[in-house]
Design a protein around this nucleic acid. Structure first.
Length: 567
RNA sequence: CGGGGCGUAGCUCAGUAUGGUUAGAGUACUUGGUUUGGGACCAAGGGGCCGGAGGUUCGAGUCCUCUCGCCCCGACCA
């Protein structure tokens, strides 16, 4: 491509609405342009990057025997009514009617459609397994689109679905997909972690998220500094504690603790580590029908993890509760404890099971119990309720857990029969009995990956594309196109690079050196070959975008050098 | 959906508290000239329903009412 004939509208200033590096640089460098909230146009450079990512996905899927399809973006509402998701998705489904007044929705994901194409067509276990996928525009009418391409309403997703006759075969495919996804992200040149995720409302037997590590990630991850274990904090586990603070020695008694309400107060009052105190967190659990207050008891040194807490009581939401509501129930904030208490449903963190030497509220103003042995509570409900903190032990290898931020670019899921059963998608097994398909689903955010590459690879001058994602690998820049010999040399080099199958752009614009260099850095081509003054000495220069290092090489060696650098 | 902010040239923004010639700057664009290794300089140009509607007024970018859009925090997010 000749730059002079390309459409690459770069700007010196960032759009005022852009906050994230990916949004700023992708806009400034002319990869994308915003149309409306959560809607983006992909300009020529952006489209090239998108296609490169798609190609890599297609290659890896093909290597796994997955079959590409392309399902209608517009989907009949009946399918969504059948699965029950038309209510569940709510306003995120963009609905509209055609001229005959039939209701349709723009596909936000395609489980229903995908099930419908195999239903009644794949009818025997002999036809299984089957893995079909597409790379397709999706639309979710998000309540609040944000962060540029990271959370758009219209976006490109690779969504794959597998169908099996046994859970063992699903497990095999799930592992194969995890390996393929790992390979894709490696090829893209990304630093990522595969983490355990909250299975949440969907249920199923397992899900993993693929997280590109970046400061601006919306998800917080707990990862081991030694082994591969990592999990979304919503689902992270930790090893049991191995070192314990010094335990307070006190016989069980009721102790007057005037105005001692917080864990800090309590810890200071008794000069005891918060580990030996019991924290009460009361929230209102919201269910499909009705709600009730619930108290969660955890050690004073821990923090409540709301997703875990929500799962522990099967609620769809947990909301804050006011002090006046607490008073109505008869609980005294600051002095709530589990002993002799029947005013509220409660769940205890599993780390408090059989705990001794504890201090907890006495359910009486200005009193706490000390020397509490929680083994008396062994019949209570226990669950994992706490947030894994930095420094906690890894549940697998005993290494130290630390926190990091991630961008969710993929999510793979063992669905089981969650969709196939209600949609009555069945096959006949070896015994001639009808069984619902056992399914897996595998998603990857393609347009989000474009942004994720830049979130992870940029500097204050602009984009730094990885070799696999760059719109062009090499930029041949002519410092001054009025130097005819320079231009002629550059044209020849450009053609040679193209003939070797190296994606190259020729910056033949009538602009000054600094202007073109700034553009090259903003756009982020991995290599810019500068044809200029040095050519008089038979030399050219190669600017390596990542380090901004400039190599001076003999003109006759430039091809070899590029071949060497691209490896 | 709650809270906050912003809509003026392609882009980034002044101007709005206190209404008053022809609405500005930078940048981008066009033409001519000089430049040519880090976003050049000189000169001459084109470009605006001041988000939209209604109102107050002799007069509205500026005041009032309504509305639409965009961004941020939160709620939400297979």
């Amino acid at each position: 491509m000749r730059f002079s004939r390309a459409y690459i509208p770069t700007t010196k200033e960032s759009p005022k609405d852009a906050q994230l590096p990916s949004h700023i640089y992708l806009s400034r460098a002319g990869f994308v342009a915003q149309v409306a909230s959560g809607l983006y146009n992909f300009l020529p450079l952006g489209k090239r990057v998108l296609r490169k990512i798609e190609n890599i996905i297609n290659e890896e899927m093909s290597a796994c025997g997955a079959l590409e399809v392309d399902l209608s973006f517009v989907t009949p509402a009946e399918l969504w009514q059948e699965s029950g998701r038309i209510e569940k998705f709510g306003k995120e489904l963009l609905r509209f009617r055609d001229r005959k007044d039939n209701l349709f929705v723009l596909g936000p994901t395609h489980e229903e459609m995908m099930v419908s194409i195999v239903r009644n067509r794949v009818t025997s276990y002999k036809q299984l397994p089957l893995n079909v996928y597409q790379v397709k525009t999706k639309f979710r009418d998000e309540a609040r689109p944000r962060f540029g391409l990271m959370r758009a309403r219209e976006f490109v997703m690779k969504d794959g679905y597998s169908f099996h006759s046994s859970t063992e075969d699903l497990d095999r495919e799930f592992d194969a997909m995890e390996a393929a996804y790992k390979k894709i992200l490696e090829r893209l040149g990304l630093n990522f972690r595969i983490v355990e995720a909250d299975s949440g409302a969907i249920g199923g037997t397992g899900s993993k998220e693929l997280m590109v590590l970046a400061q601006s990630g919306e998800d917080t991850l707990a990862v081991c500094d030694t082994c591969e274990y990592g999990a979304n904090v919503e689902a992270a586990r930790r090893a049991p504690r191995s070192v314990f603070p010094e335990a307070p020695s006190a016989d069980f008694s009721r102790f007057k603790t005037p105005n001692v309400k917080s864990i800090d107060d309590l810890s200071n009052f008794f000069h005891v580590d918060p580990y030996y105190t019991l924290k009460a967190v009361v929230m209102r659990a919201v269910y499909t029908e009705g709600s009730e207050p619930v108290c969660f008891f955890i050690r004073g040194c821990d923090e409540l993890q709301e997703v875990k807490a929500r799962n522990s009581v099967g609620a769809i939401d947990l909301v804050d509760i006011s002090e006046s509501e607490l008073s109505e129930i008869g609980l005294i904030p600051g002095f709530i404890g589990p002993l002799d208490q029947d005013k509220i449903r409660f769940v205890m963190d599993k780390d408090t099971l059989n705990a001794t030497s504890m201090i907890c509220g006495a359910n009486e103003m200005d009193y706490h119990f000390v020397g509490v042995d929680l083994s008396v509570m062994k019949d209570a409900v226990f669950a994992d309720l706490v947030t894994v903190q930095a420094g906690d032990g890894c549940p697998h290898c005993g290494g130290k857990m630390e926190h990091t931020k991630g961008i969710e670019v993929g999510h793979i899921f063992k669905l089981g029969t969650v969709y196939s059963a209600p949609l009555k998608a069945e096959f006949l097994d070896e015994n001639g009995r009808a069984q619902p398909f056992i399914m897996g689903t595998y998603g990857m955010g393609v347009s989000r990956l474009v942004a994720a590459v830049i979130e992870q690879h940029h500097d204050e001058r602009g984009c730094i594309w990885t070799h696999a994602t760059a719109p062009y690998l090499v930029n041949v820049m002519v410092s001054n196109i009025k130097e005819e010999s320079h231009l002629a040399y550059a044209e020849e080099l450009y053609n040679t690079l193209l003939s070797r199958g190296i994606e190259t752009i020729l910056d033949d614009r009538k602009e000054r050196f600094g202007f073109k260099m700034s553009d090259a850095e903003l756009i982020g081509f991995p290599f810019t070959i500068i044809i200029g003054k040095e050519l008089e000495n038979g030399q050219v220069q190669i600017m390596i975008r990542e380090s901004r290092e400039i190599l001076t090489v003999d003109a006759e060696n430039v091809l070899d050098k590029i071949e060497e650098l691209r490896r």
